[in-house]
């Protein structure tokens, strides 16, 4: 038996919003420690790693490890049926062909159940080594979203250049060039608004706007985003999910032809 309950279904809705543009289907690995998803987009340019710890759920039971292949589009449709104040419970048997989503209204007067067929998936699992990065930048997620959206108008990719002074984002295209520089914030009174730059070595990397604009869909999950960068390796773009876990996006850089 697998059962996981979250009082705030809104968290799960936001998680689905954060992956539905990148992934068509994904395997949810459920164990005693929680739920994990690792999946690449169809073009194998980016990778999503989602971790929801069992202790972050209001109720969690997983008698044996389960790998459940799910259609992200279908799951997203189901979660759109949850009221914003509803509680959500995920339930599956030990050898499941289906997973059930149960939504309960706060006054318990409405109970909705949606059963979704699981899918068999051949999945590739990638080993992601623990890495120490040359630059780690933390900034407001709204600001990062804004920068990605604004610069996407000027080119297909954005160059991230991080130095002691701060981080510079730039894009260029047929119409000209756009640059946005962010300096580390001086006072850290408001943690949510802070920009922090931890630099060991300067980095300069170029990334596709298309993928960055998918990652920023996770913005509503967390006030801050963390960007981890080293030259010539994938960007890690991480959003915390409350006290329950995190979503990490890995994006392969573009290289000079």
């Amino acid at each position: 038996m697998f059962e996981a309950r979250l009082v705030q279904s809104a968290i799960l809705k936001k998680v689905l919003d954060a992956i539905k543009d990148l992934l068509t289907e994904a395997t949810f690995e459920c164990s005693d420690s929680g739920i994990q998803v690792q999946a690449m987009d169809n073009a194998h340019v980016s990778l999503v790693s989602l971790n929801l710890r069992s202790d972050g759920f209001d109720k969690y039971r997983c008698d044996r490890n389960l790998s459940m292949g799910m259609s992200i589009a279908c799951m997203s449709k189901i979660l759109r049926c949850a009221g914003s104040e509803d509680t959500v419970t995920l339930r599956a048997l030990d050898n499941p062909e289906n997973i059930v989503f149960i939504f309960e209204s706060p006054n318990k007067e409405k109970l909705a159940e949606y059963e979704m067929k699981l899918i068999n998936m051949d999945q590739e699992h990638l080993g992601i080594p623990e890495t120490s990065y040359s630059c780690i930048v933390k900034m407001p997620s709204q600001e990062f979203s804004r920068i990605c959206r604004d610069l996407s108008q000027f080119g297909e990719s954005i160059t991230f250049a991080c130095s002691k002074e701060g981080i510079k984002f730039s894009a260029s295209g047929d119409y000209g060039q756009a640059t946005i520089k962010l300096a580390q914030t001086a006072d850290a009174d408001n943690e949510e608004e802070a920009v922090s730059v931890n630099m060991q070595e300067p980095v300069k990397l170029t990334f596709s706007c298309r993928y960055l604009n998918c990652f920023i869909k996770a913005g509503p999950l967390c006030a801050q985003v963390q960007l981890s960068m080293s030259n010539d390796v994938p960007l890690v773009c991480e959003y915390k999910i409350g006290d329950i876990g995190h979503i990490r996006y890995y994006l392969a850089p573009k290289i000079d032809d």
């Binding site: 690449m40 340019v45 980016s46 699992h125 990638l126 080993g127 992601i128 994938p234 890995y250 032809d257």
Partner: peptide, 14 residues
């Protein structure tokens, strides 16, 4: 011009 690398070229299959 930039060429897009694949994410799988950075990580090993397990």
């Amino acid at each position: 011009n930039h060429a897009q690398k694949k994410i799988s070229s950075f990580f090993s299959n397990i």
